[in-house]
Write a protein that binds this DNA or RNA. Structure first.
Ligand SMILES: [Mn+2]
Ligand SMILES: [Mn+2]
Ligand SMILES: [Zn+2]
Ligand SMILES: [Zn+2]
Lengths: 136, 136
DNA sequence: TACATTATTGTACTTAGTACAAATTATAAT
DNA sequence: ATTATAATTTGTACTAAGTACAATAATGTA
């Protein structure tokens, strides 16, 4: 636990992000809670530990982490922005019954599109919707 | 033009959607303006013709059209929901410089994911981000 | 045409996210 | 360690997307 915290400090330092307790806590939360949480979930849970926490700080911190490439944004539903500590290429499946978001492996390099020959592609996203096994 | 309008009437009737001038106009707009417009763009443009148009009506109409499968929702950026009259399988590329959204062909059936064997998949989405040729 | 049903409109409301200035905390220099 | 400087956090006010709802208008049917 103490060890993890030191690892996260390293992670931020390597990206030239100044250390703060709030930033470490948000990063720790995303490392432990792998459900692609929303800002509100992060805020509500962390507020139990940090009673003075402001939601603006959560927004600010996430923006910083995303810009540094430590966290990615998941946009599946327009009304709920979610955050993912796993920045490696992978797809997302959202169950329309329970709302849970599952990760799946997909080879983004195999998604070669001839229509986009002269386009500079920076980011590839794949997401599916349907019903998960538990809800079926 | 008159012919097109009759076609759209047919399209709605086939889906058991009651006819109204507003619904026809929204459908006509999406048929003609293929830029994946937002609610606000649709509303602002149609208001020039229909001065009494309410934004609520645009929201209601789009919900009806999406439920009927005549229109699909495009969620790339969390703050801008866009609408597409082309409901066939295809991918979207958003230029991060000019904001334009391009269509591209992609074979969704080739996206077979072994991690999702027991999942019921209803909807597959692929979108890329980057810079378009005009902006490069 | 008359009636019943459905759609439109306008307003009020909710919620996600942003702007900004004051207060606090972290970093660097002495 | 103390101080000065810079960066971050916090709280409030604000914006904008979207929804709820009741009154009004339009549409479909007998
Ligand atoms: Mn993920
Ligand atoms: Mn399209
Ligand atoms: Zn489920
Ligand atoms: Zn462009």
């Amino acid at each position: 636990m103490q060890l993890l915290f030191e690892d996260l400090k390293e992670k931020l330092k390597k990206k030239n992000i100044n250390l703060s307790y709030q930033r470490l806590k948000v990063l720790e939360y995303l490392t432990q809670v792998r459900t692609h949480p929303t800002v509100d979930q992060i805020f509500t849970d962390l507020q139990k530990d940090i009673s003075t926490l402001s939601k603006t700080t959560v927004y600010n911190t996430l923006r910083v982490l995303v810009q540094a490439g430590l966290v990615r944004v998941i946009t599946i539903e327009d009304n709920e922005t979610r955050y993912d500590i796993d920045v490696r290429d992978h797809g997302h499946f959202k169950c329309e019954s329970c709302g849970k978001i599952y990760d799946f492996n997909i080879d983004m390099n195999s998604l070669i599109v001839k229509d986009l020959n002269n386009f500079k592609i920076d980011d590839k996203n794949v997401y599916f919707k349907g019903i998960c096994p538990q809800c079926l």
